[in-house]
Design a protein around this nucleic acid. Structure first.
Lengths: 124, 124
DNA sequence: CAGGATCCTGTGTGATACTG
DNA sequence: CAGTATCACACAGGATCCTG
C-alpha cells in the first residue's frame, strides 16, 4: 500500500550519470514509448497498437514512470468514453539527438555485432 | 549446461534499434564498465575497484557479454599470477559521443527530474 | 477507452565459498 | 590474480479478470 513506484530507482545520486539515464529509460519499453511519442502526442490505445508486443499493464507502468520523472505529460479529456493524451516534455527534446545516434549505430553496427557473436559462440 | 549466454537477448532483429542498444548495454553494469574502459585498458581487479558496488560475479558476466558482442576485447598474459587485460573495441568509439551526451544530460536534467518526481509524489 | 488489481514466473543480481 | 560454482531472492514482466 502506497509503496512508492520503484520500477525505477529512486535515487539520482549515483556517481555514474549514464546509469541514471539507463535507470530512467533502460527498461524494456520506456525507450520505445518515447520514440513513439516523439512522432507526436498519442492516446493510450494508439500507443498500445504502435508498440508491438507491449501489454496494457506494461504500457501503463512505463507511462507512469515517464510521467513521474517529468519526461511525459498526461492530459485527460473528460469525454465519454474517456480520452487521455500523452506527450513528451521539453526534457526529452534534449536527448532526442543522442538517442537517434544510438539507433543509427545499432542499425549500422548490427551486422558486426552478430558476426562477433557468432565468432565468440564458435570458439566456446 | 552450455546453455548460451542469454543475459542479453540473442536476437538483433528487433524493429526498434534503440531497444537493441539497450539490450546490449542497458543492464545494471555494462555501461559503467564501458565508461571505465573508455579511460584506457584495465585489468579485472582494477575494474572491480573502480566500479563501486559491483560484485566479482557481475563484473565477469558483464565483461563476457560485452566481449561476446564485440564491444570489448580480452587479452590474457600468461603470467603468474595471471593477468588479463580488457579494452574497448572500435565499435564502442562510435557511440562514445552519444553516450557522453546522455551523461551530460543526466547531470544537467537531474534536478528537474527530482523536482518532477517530488511534484508527482506529492499529488498522489 | 483507459486503466486497476492479482497472481505467477523467469532471470538478473547478490552473497558466499572454492580454484588454477 | 582472475575467475567459477552454488544458492537464494527480489523484481520486472506477462496473463487474466475487473471497473468508472
Amino acid at each position: 500500500m502506497s509503496q512508492r513506484n520503484t520500477a525505477v530507482t529512486d535515487q539520482f545520486t549515483d556517481d555514474c550519470p549514464l546509469r541514471e539515464v539507463l535507470a530512467l529509460i533502460g527498461d524494456k519499453w520506456s525507450a520505445q514509448v518515447l520514440v513513439e511519442l516523439g512522432e507526436g502526442p498519442r492516446r493510450f490505445t494508439q500507443l498500445e497498437r504502435a508498440i508491438e508486443g507491449i501489454s496494457r499493464r506494461m504500457l501503463t507502468v512505463s507511462l507512469r514512470n515517464l510521467e513521474r520523472n517529468g519526461l511525459v505529460t498526461r492530459t485527460v479529456y473528460p469525454d465519454s468514453p474517456p480520452s487521455v493524451e500523452y506527450a513528451t516534455t521539453a526534457l526529452v527534446e534534449e536527448i532526442r539527438e543522442p538517442l537517434e545516434a544510438l539507433s543509427a549505430w545499432a542499425r549500422h553496427a548490427g551486422p558486426a555485432i552478430l558476426e562477433a557473436r557468432r565468432a565468440y559462440d564458435d570458439r566456446c
